Computed example of a mutant assay.
Amino acid sequence: MPILKRPDAEIHYEVHGRGFPLLLYAPGGLRSSIEFWGPAADGTPRAWMDPRVALSDRFTVISMDQRNAGKSVADVKPDHGWHTFAADHLALIDHLGFGQFAVMGGCIGGSYCFEAIEQAPDRVAAAVLQNPIGLWENRDTWDEAVKGYAATVRARDPSISETTIRSFGQNMFGGDFVFSVTRDFVKDCRTPLLLQPGTDKPHPAHTSNEIASLAPNIEVQKDWRAPHFLQESINRVRAFLEKHTA
């Protein structure tokens, strides 16, 4: 089991295929882990592609369990936030010996994509935003996400204080829009983006519409989520990434 050892974390990851590197950020909110790309526990296929299978013939597809999700474990500190996760992401890319890379994120992964672009704009060649999260009449969703994260990390380390959890939660979800970056950042973002919009409470259509209206270099694939759109979604993502990762 490949593990990236960080000063405060052990990050589990997988690598599939060969080609231009594509770093995946899985769905699942703060439980974002590799398993959310594959079938559900009962074998039911997801409503989205598994890029490890669909794209590994053309790209080096790198999937990972985010810190304190799946098989990854890490400390939690009061100053941790989006930048902490981004540091893991860039460290993994460096560990694998890549310079430029593309990113693809589902759910919370859309916000990880934006944070990667903010932290390393010259390295992120393109980003696929699939079902991005955002704040729109759903504050309770993110309060519950932080509570669930607290239960997970405290089961491993009971010394993590409520004050630390509150600070971490504020750093992650205390803002608005997509949480990790501002509307002004997206308005000035020149990185090529492909948006597959969200439509439900954690992934508001309002947020996807805002991203689409603000970003200056964006394509939108409105119909992507359902078995009968699966191949079309794969084709569109592949063509977009091939176009921007020569």
Rank of each mutant, 00 (worst) to 15 (best):
I218D: 08
G134M: 11
V181L: 01
A69L: 00
A116H: 03
D188F: 01
A47M: 10
K201G: 04
H228M: 11
L230I: 10
L90V: 15
F185S: 14
L23Q: 08
D157S: 10
D94L: 02
R31N: 06
I160T: 13
C107N: 06
D184F: 13
G106W: 10
S208K: 07
A127P: 07
K77P: 00
M172P: 15
I211P: 08
I62V: 06
L96C: 03
Q170M: 15
G19H: 10
G105T: 05
A86Y: 08
A47W: 04
E242Y: 05
E232D: 05
A54G: 04
I3V: 15
G109A: 05
V220Q: 03
G134A: 12
V128N: 00
E115F: 01
P121L: 15
P204L: 10
F101C: 02
G106N: 09
P39Y: 00
D65S: 06
E242V: 00
Q119L: 06
A215D: 08
R6A: 02
F229I: 06
I11P: 03
M49S: 04
P78W: 02
H80G: 13
V186R: 03
M104P: 09
P158T: 13
V186N: 05
L23N: 07
S233L: 00
R236P: 02
W82T: 13
A246L: 12
F20A: 13
A127K: 07
A120W: 09
H228I: 13
C189Q: 13
N131Y: 13
S111V: 03
R154M: 10
D184M: 04
A9I: 14
K5E: 15
Q221E: 04
S180W: 01
C113Q: 02
V61D: 03
T199S: 11
R6I: 10
S111E: 02
P197T: 14
P204S: 11
Q66F: 07
A102C: 11
K187D: 06
R67A: 04
W142K: 03
P121Y: 12
A151Q: 14
K187W: 05
T163E: 08
I3C: 11
W142T: 05
F173V: 09
R52V: 02
D140G: 06
L195H: 09
D79P: 00
C189G: 13
G175D: 11
Q196W: 12
D200T: 15
G109R: 04
L195T: 12
I108H: 09
A116E: 10
E35R: 14
E232A: 06
S56H: 02
L90K: 07
L214Q: 05
A246C: 12
F177C: 15
T191Y: 14
D94H: 11
A125C: 06
S72A: 08
G29H: 09
S233I: 07
A26E: 01
S161G: 09
T164W: 07
T245Y: 03
I234D: 00
R190L: 12
